[in-house]
Amino acid sequence: MKNSSRRGFMGKAFGAVAGVGAVGALYAMKRSWDPLPSVKAAGFTTLDMSAYKDNELITEKWRGKPIFVLKQTKTMAEKAEANPKDIERLIKVGDSYFMVCIGLCTHLGCIPGYNSDEESFLCACHGGMYDFTGEVTKAPPPRGLDIPPFKVDGNKLVLGEEGPEYKKMKETGVTL
């Protein structure tokens, strides 16, 4: 009896040591799978907004992701004005409105294509659609295209930095 309780204690003592070791090892493994600091510090992208043309989709790159920039024509801006869901999504730089979105479908991440005649995006993967402001118009995507963190700086737009306009969009739930 005495003997077995001593073994029982040894078993528990080993269990405790092994448990601590296992937790430590799991933590180290988790950290090793984390994105590297160099990847995380992938910097900022600055866009010169005066270079874009009306209703012509340009794809920029930020943190390895495609960024859609679409300068709105007068009529597009007016149409957006009529629809609060649309106008909230646009970014005003100088006198022009821009749609700036992460060009990955919010369903499962394919890149939607833009049709400038129909002023809409179509995602070929599962048939999702968005309008010219990136607002979703046909499922399965659950929401409009995400807007990257941005800061308006005169005629420039800095991606990766959170300006007041972006913070407001986040608060009102325009983007995630």
Partner: peptide
């Protein structure tokens, strides 16, 4: 975390 990056790289 699974990818180790924002996109597959």
């Amino acid at each position: 975390w699974i990818r180790g990056d924002y996109v597959p790289a």
